[in-house]
Amino acid sequence: MNQTAGILFQLGQSLLLVAVAPLWLGWVNQWRAWLQNKRGAGLFQPYRGLAKLFNKEALLAHRASPLFRATPYILFGCMWLAAGIVPVLATSLPYSPAADVIALVGVFALARVFMALAAMDVGTAFGSLGARREMLIAFLAEPALLMVFFTASLISHSTALTTIVETLAHKQFALYPSMAFASVAFLMALLAENARLPVDNPATHLELTMIHEAMVLEYSARHLALIEWASSIKLLTYTVIGIALFLPFGIAQAGDWSALPVAVGALLAKLAVAGPGLALLETLSAKLRIFRAPEFLGTAFLLAVLGMLTHFLLET
């Protein structure tokens, strides 16, 4: 494999993911608006929002520490790293070995811990409330998410995402009943980790129900812009991981330029469908009370475990 081409692929892919993430968020929001009989703000609204925020003067609380100011950048860096590692368009990228699925979950955890700490930094009531809830959701969602990945890695005998995707995509077609359970569990974990309904409402500004929004209350201008951008990258990365795990067909090898158009087309088609799907899911479900979230995520965990057991019973 050509090393330069591989590196170009990797750089291009992470840049693409970072650049396109707000667009995809716009697509989801647009569909959500349509499904709710609203007109919607248009596909490019997230970009307009970011531009507006970047141009504003940043307001910082008197008590904010350097940790508070550094967190948006760290968050952005973590998400960029995650976006660079996931096989989106091509597998076997040269730097994919830097992290496997477990490390990928670790990146998200790192970002989350910094976010929660920053939320507690100013010392407001809502900040610590948000931090506590975020960590609560996270410690419940993380085991479910990892169990999904473990199931996939037991099938492919590897925790490297590249190998997993190659096993699932390029080998001869096989149906994995375990992955059916795992996909449902993954979807539930995705909703929880990305602060979507029914666990958290990204559009809420009702103080008592906020989770993610409560954590970023004290941020403004460029800091807020970076955080929002990072969240949209996170959502897109999660979706792409889901696509790579459960619908990996059409993905290219790194440096294989001829397969690239097919890969891009396939990815676009999958994302175009996933957006309305997510919007529909969010429109149909109502927000859970915070203490119903453990049940929701407990179900996700059990489904993932069930998937793993199914793998042992039916697929070995």
Binding site: E57, A58, L59, L60, A61, H62, R63, V122, G123, T124, A125, F126, G127, L217, E218, S220
Partner: peptide
């Protein structure tokens, strides 16, 4: 950057 009271 401008320092101010927290928003909360």
């Amino acid at each position: 950057i401008r320092r101010s009271d927290p928003w909360d």
